[in-house]
């Protein structure tokens, strides 16, 4: 099974990279772009076929290592 994990800065947490990218977009004439946030995208394969377990394990991976709950939110998708 393939997991696709999306990690984004927590709402309200300072995001200097997002701000910088937004400024650059505006400078390039993309005035309509707003609310830019930079996160991380992680792909991984999970052995074993039990979807419920894969979901549980991926969630645990996110909580323990992949995301830092103090500053980041996460969500993930599983694909067969």
């Amino acid at each position: 099974m393939r997991a696709r994990v999306f990690i984004t800065p927590k709402k309200g947490v300072l995001d200097p990279q997002g701000k910088a990218v937004e400024r650059s977009l505006h400078a390039l004439g993309f005035a309509e772009a707003h609310d830019v946030h930079l996160g991380k995208y992680i792909e991984l394969s999970i052995e074993g076929g039990d979807r419920a377990q894969a979901e549980r394990r991926t969630d645990e991976m996110c909580r323990r290592l992949l995301a830092n709950g103090v500053i980041e939110d996460y969500r993930f998708e599983l694909q067969d």
């Binding site: 947490v13 300072l14 200097p16 910088a20 830092n68 103090v70 500053i71």
Partner: peptide
């Protein structure tokens, strides 16, 4: 220490990047 939970909070990218 912050990641390990021995101290509260977190350290992120400098404002200047």
């Amino acid at each position: 220490l912050c990641e390990a939970g021995l101290l509260p909070g977190a350290l992120i990218r400098n404002r200047s990047l």
